[in-house]
Write a protein that binds this DNA or RNA. Structure first.
Lengths: 187, 187
DNA sequence: TACAAAACAGACAAGTCTGTCTACTAAATT
DNA sequence: AATTTAGTAGACAGACTTGTCTGTTTTGTA
């Protein structure tokens, strides 16, 4: 097994465990057991659990953005593409192992002092907001720049609220509700 | 010090620590040290940390609902009262020790198996949704029942999203954004 | 004043955690 | 074929965790 493949195995395993069972509730011993590697191997790739946490967040972010882009770009430009954001979320919600937002989950678990992780999370959210802004730019080019940014923020807020609340209640209605508001904003 | 007063001291202290520093990151030893009580005393009032967690959630919920009701009922009935919900949130956000939503934070920290705590959280959110519904019933009696419920869900979603996101970013704009959407929904 | 309830202080058990280290083995490269 | 690199296995340190238990002291009441 290649060096980089081992690293990826660790990240994949840790991501599943951290996301499904919680960061603090998942011990390093569980990660190495599940990944089938030795402890020293893990610590040769990551110098601390925090560093592994950072890799976990980036991994989730990367795979999410890719799936999101693929889904949304498949929908024709315009209002349809924008509301399709919530169709994507519905698929995400219904997919096995949905556990809400890893950013929100992680930020609840780590102490305030760990600013590197906290800025990583903020950066992810800002990047996602930029992605939404670009969709709006593509789909509604006639809007003024200020209006575009405002709309991006609004849709971001609806999306994030829908993720958290659909998970908390274990029900779809928050996603439907968010989508219906989105349609009103586009009217 | 009265028996019930000791109990309240424990709850107050634990609530501050759990909410500010996280549930799992706060040890029982820290709670008893801060509260100035003996460990046996704590365990005579609460048979486990989980039970204390439940008391913490209920305490937060109670004081929140009281402050919320007081604030909102001070605003004249009608659309004004509804949008005032977000003015309350802004005050909450700016208050010292704001740390997002205790429900979302706690649900990220506890294992899936602890269904008592998870249902406690769901119940709190459903109760809050009912409070919002009653505000709408009082303020917009002319709406059809179905429309009222729909609006309550939408405002609930906006509120919860605004709490999480204002905390995550450490910025007010999500609250402003939520309020502006709310005004559109009421127009 | 006597008694009972309740709180105190803190040792202790039994287990968790992260991270380090040693010793050994397998694989890849020179 | 020899050497270096990357992995395995797991003991260990040291610090944490929750919860129990013993014994003492304070407090409120009858």
């Amino acid at each position: 097994m290649k060096h980089s493949a081992v690293r990826q195995t660790i990240i994949d395993t840790a991501s599943d465990l951290f996301y499904n069972n919680g960061y603090n509730l998942t011990g390093i011993n569980e990660v190495i057991k599940e990944a089938g590697i030795a402890k020293a191997t893990l610590y040769s790739h990551f110098k601390s659990k925090d560093e592994l946490c950072s890799a976990y967040l980036q991994h989730k972010h990367g795979t999410f953005l890719e799936a999101f882009d693929t889904y949304v770009n498949d929908v024709p430009k315009g209002k349809k593409r924008i509301t399709a954001i919530f169709d994507f979320l519905k698929e995400f919600y219904e997919s096995e192992g949905f556990n809400g937002c890893w950013c929100i989950n992680t930020i609840s678990e780590i102490p305030k002092e760990k600013i590197e992780l906290r800025t990583e999370i903020k950066n992810q959210k800002n990047e996602f907001r930029d992605v939404l802004l670009n969709i709006i730019k593509d789909s509604l080019p006639e809007l003024k720049p200020k209006k575009k940014k405002e709309l991006a923020n609004q849709i971001y807020l609806l999306y994030e609220g829908a993720v958290s609340e659909s998970f908390l209640h274990g029900e779809v209605w928050p996603i439907d509700s968010a989508q219906s508001i989105c349609k009103i904003l586009l009217a």
